[in-house]
Design a protein around this nucleic acid. Structure first.
Lengths: 148, 148
DNA sequence: GGCTGGAATGAGAAGATTTCGCATTTAGAA
DNA sequence: TTCTAAATGCGAAATCTTCTCATTCCAGCC
């Protein structure tokens, strides 16, 4: 039961929090903005205020239930933590997101932090590119493609 | 002369663009938000509208003169491109930013993009942690530290 | 060196995302 | 069931960024 997950995370098992957590678990979308969660819940007949969505997602992040990402858009997207860490490769044309894990990169990151004297708390690696479908399709480009 | 740099980048050499470019070159801060550029120019007696700062920085980005970063704050920061690529390690307490290059990571990123069928256009690697000074100092923590 | 057309700028409004303040409701323990 | 602190909902507000459009400026041409 999800309410146990919330309690374990140190959060009171309120209805809005349960709805949000259940929705994140059941959605086939892995990466969702606060707005998207809000609208999806609305459509499902579950009314949760937008401010609450933001508050709850931030609490979930602090509790380690979700991770907040800053892709090259203007807003945060959230992803349910399923245990395994991974990084992301994002299509700059269609927004598609694929995931990958690379142990070599992981290891070198730790080593770099250590060399610099940092106590590493987190890291984020985003590869941007044109996904296979968009390469076949060709076509217009977005601002993000103009980067160095 | 900077106006040549602008022309070469395909941009008309206007006064605001020159001021902004010169400022980025002369500043000892490597990473600046639009707001910071705006205020710094104001203090230097160079009045450039904030909207222009945003427009120009976006053009500079498209022209490859600067790179836009999304650290874990709510806004973009810009960095003058000096040729060499590098990644960043950011202190979650004080905001200090160090840079590093790791050829192994670079190579693996290319390989991953290739394996996934992506045509890589860019990538961003941020390591977050507590910098040596803040580790010595101890003390309060920020939201970003609560991540997975 | 002045003239001209189209591009660039400035100022403020507007848009987008996120947070805040506070009255009301709710979870969970007594 | 009753109670209290915590959570929620709503709208206002804060923050960051883009847009609109009248005015100004750059660059080529005389």
């Amino acid at each position: 039961m999800e309410s146990q997950d919330l309690k374990r995370a140190g959060l009171k098992a309120t209805l809005p929090r349960l709805k949000i957590l259940r929705f994140l678990e059941e959605s086939d979308q892995r990466h969702m903005s606060a707005e998207e969660v809000y609208k999806a819940l609305l459509e499902a007949g579950e009314e949760v205020g937008l401010a609450t969505i933001y508050r709850v997602l931030t609490q979930f992040e602090a509790a380690g239930l979700v991770t907040r990402h800053h892709f090259d858009e203007g807003h945060s997207v959230f992803e349910l933590n399923l245990g395994e860490h991974h990084d992301h490769i994002v299509c700059v044309r269609c927004g598609r997101v694929d995931e990958f894990v690379d142990e070599v990169i992981e290891a070198r990151q730790h080593r770099i932090a250590e060399e610099k004297g940092y106590e590493m708390t987190d890291h984020a690696l985003y590869i941007y590119g044109v996904c296979p479908e968009c390469r076949k399709a060709g076509g217009r480009r977005t601002r993000a493609e103009g980067r160095g």
